[in-house]
Design a protein around this nucleic acid. Structure first.
Lengths: 213, 213
DNA sequence: TGAGAAATGTGAGAAATCCTCACATTTGCA
DNA sequence: TGCAAATGTGAGGATTTCTCACATTTCTCA
């Protein structure tokens, strides 16, 4: 009896706020919603996060929630977007002044450590980037972020190795970056000692690739 | 008014069949269920897979489905388990006869290509390992699988570099393996040309790490 | 063989959750 | 002040997972 509609919409590429808050009041409420979501994700993971609970914790009605976020994924996406913006700034700053191989070694190593600590300390970030593969919009955000970050690396590499093939550098940087994220995810899902070893191994491996020998 | 129960069960570590099929009849039906699930995952992804649809396609009632699979995740898990079993056998075979560095280079390179093709060709495998991070049971299965596969590599490495620190080798192999999976996932989510470049870059990087320079 | 036990099969519906919508309230502004 | 736009509300529609009481089939063994 059930008539299946022609095609289901599937996942929309980008989930933007249904309506952006223009008044001070609503801007504050949206902040509360995001804060509530963040707390809940930290406690139980984004999958277990319930829209009703987010609304309750934020002290708003479920309807208000949907006024600004078209669906559940949009909330996670909004949080993810903030993280990427923050971390991109951080990465750009770290790689900005790199002039030679030793600079790069230092900066990269530091960056990896920062990321490692961030992943260990931020359950929300961890959770969001974990679910990344299952959600098209998130995956695309992550890929875009990764490319942007790789770009910073490419800029540095071009200075250090001006004669290398640009496409080659591009590929290397992108791969190294993505593997870094994979290494972080891996490192936090094993015990601390092994995690540290894995991060160290990744650093060696990445640097060997980036600066040679 | 709602009373929140003490603690929700969260994700169970291992989802084993509620009841294993002992009669020929039910074994065949379970096969049909898995086949139906596999088809649906290939078509729309495991997230969009509906239990009712699986039952319908398998020609069984929804109740029968739940007789053998405690929940939806268990079906995906069962499929994942098959893939790991198959691929482990394949990997073991490929690395079995490796005697020197050149053997390893050849075998590893071939293995990576096989995986790459597999990821490109098998939407189900792709989907399952994509969702891997969001599901504890799947993540653990993947980690265990990865460790097992890394073991094969370690065995080879110990023969090639008997004087190296075993823990070091262990870490390297595990990392290299996990990064391979990350590289595969990455490679299939960009266009073909870039994917090929990334896979090639990964190969270089991994081999440099495994056999040195 | 046949009767009782065990295994298997069924589908209505309970429970949980996401999201909508018609209507109420507040704010901005001329 | 008064109207329009923005914002707020929560009951309930729609969907989906999973349960359970009962029906049917297969197995076992005297």
């Amino acid at each position: 009896m059930e008539e299946k509609a022609a095609a289901r919409p599937e996942q929309v590429a980008i989930a933007s706020p249904r309506r952006s808050p223009s008044q001070q009041r609503s801007r504050e409420r949206v902040e509360r919603m995001l804060a509530a979501a963040s707390t809940l994700i930290a406690e139980q993971g984004s999958d277990a996060m319930r829209m009703g609970e987010v609304a309750e914790r934020a002290g708003v009605s479920i309807g208000s929630l949907y006024q600004f976020f078209p669906d559940k994924r949009a909330i996670v996406w909004a949080l993810a977007e903030r993280y990427t913006a923050e971390s991109q700034a951080c990465i750009a700053a770290a790689l900005k002044g790199v002039g030679d191989k030793d600079d790069l070694k230092r900066a990269f190593s530091e960056l990896v450590d920062i990321y490692h600590r961030l992943f260990l300390a931020e359950p929300v970030m961890r959770d969001i980037w974990s679910g990344t593969q299952a959600d098209k919009a998130l995956r695309e955000l992550e890929l875009a972020d990764s490319r942007a970050n790789a770009e910073f690396l490419v800029a540095v590499l071009k200075r250090l190795r001006p004669d290398a093939d640009p496409i080659e550098l591009e590929t290397t940087a992108f791969l190294v970056w993505q593997m870094g994220e994979a290494a972080m995810r891996l490192a936090i899902s094993v015990d601390r000692a092994e995690g540290d070893r894995l991060v160290a191994a990744y650093k060696r491996m990445a640097l060997r690739e980036l600066v040679g020998g």
